[in-house]
Design a protein around this nucleic acid. Structure first.
Lengths: 146, 146
DNA sequence: TAAAATCTCTATAGTCACTATAGAGTCAAG
DNA sequence: CTTGACTCTATAGTGACTATAGAGATTTTA
């Protein structure tokens, strides 16, 4: 009990500023304050913060985490939503992986193009980057002209 | 010649605002202006913008692209830097892929934990997210407490 | 007891690569 | 002369933090 923010940071492997940020974002409830206006945390905060950090380590967004915390906070609800959320997240990760693998193929192709001429002017890589065969459809970003 | 920004956008598969943004960031040179203060582009701009978009489609950062453009702009230099930059970028992508694959394994493990009890209270997924075995070392983010 | 070091507080701005908005000006067609 | 499509600048917002400044609280050391 009566843990100060620095100790909570050490216990959770999370920076002090990040803890305050989570509080501002409504993921962590506002803790009690000491006479000198320092935040004082208890066990529940530690556990909640570890939950958040674990979710973040799984690359969930703060709004996904907010949703999970909401489900956790009223445990009467149906468990199905948790599954749905996790399933959606797995699919996102899968899509990112396959996009990145395709990207890597492009890059490796490009690497082969260097003629070894030692002058930028004749570099096949730069030339390869110049003729734009693909058109706006990136691996990880999207941009459509309209 | 005398292409306006909207046409350039269509030709390059890139939004109008993005073109202005690239100009502000110094990737595209400031074009001539019409009597009514509209930007007027030529062939060189089209080609340069396509080069930028191609690099972006390969997920390069704007500062990587800035470096490549700098090399392209004085072609006397050694071609080796282009190779170095591309090699570094490929390694970054490889690291991201393996991080994401590890992440996916965690997520799939977690999915198995649902007891199917239909109540959030007993949901093995939420419990799995609670006990934080891993500590701060995320797949795609980093955060160290100090 | 005083000074120094460490911790904490708030508020604000910066990161990246855009995206969105507001409000005004320009130009071609009907 | 009005409509509509296009363009201009400037500013703020996105996500998940990070960095900074300037002040106050607490602990350690002399």
């Amino acid at each position: 009990m009566e843990i100060r923010i620095g100790d909570l940071a050490k216990r959770s492997g999370c920076k002090v500023v990040t803890i305050r940020y989570y509080e501002k974002e409504g993921l962590l409830p506002k803790p009690a304050r000491s006479g000198g206006n320092f935040r004082l945390y208890g066990e529940a905060h530690i556990e909640r913060l570890q939950f958040i950090r674990h979710c973040r380590s799984l690359d969930m967004t703060l709004s996904e985490i907010r949703a999970l915390l909401g489900l956790r906070d009223n445990p009467m609800q149906d468990c199905g939503e948790v599954n749905t959320l996790l399933e959606a997240h797995i699919q996102q990760v899968e899509m990112r992986v396959s996009a990145l693998l395709q990207l890597k193929r492009h890059l490796v192709d490009l690497r082969e193009k260097c003629s070894g001429s030692r002058s930028v002017e004749a570099c096949g890589i730069l030339q390869g980057l110049g003729n734009c065969n693909c058109h706006g459809e990136s691996a990880t970003n999207s941009q459509t002209s309209g």
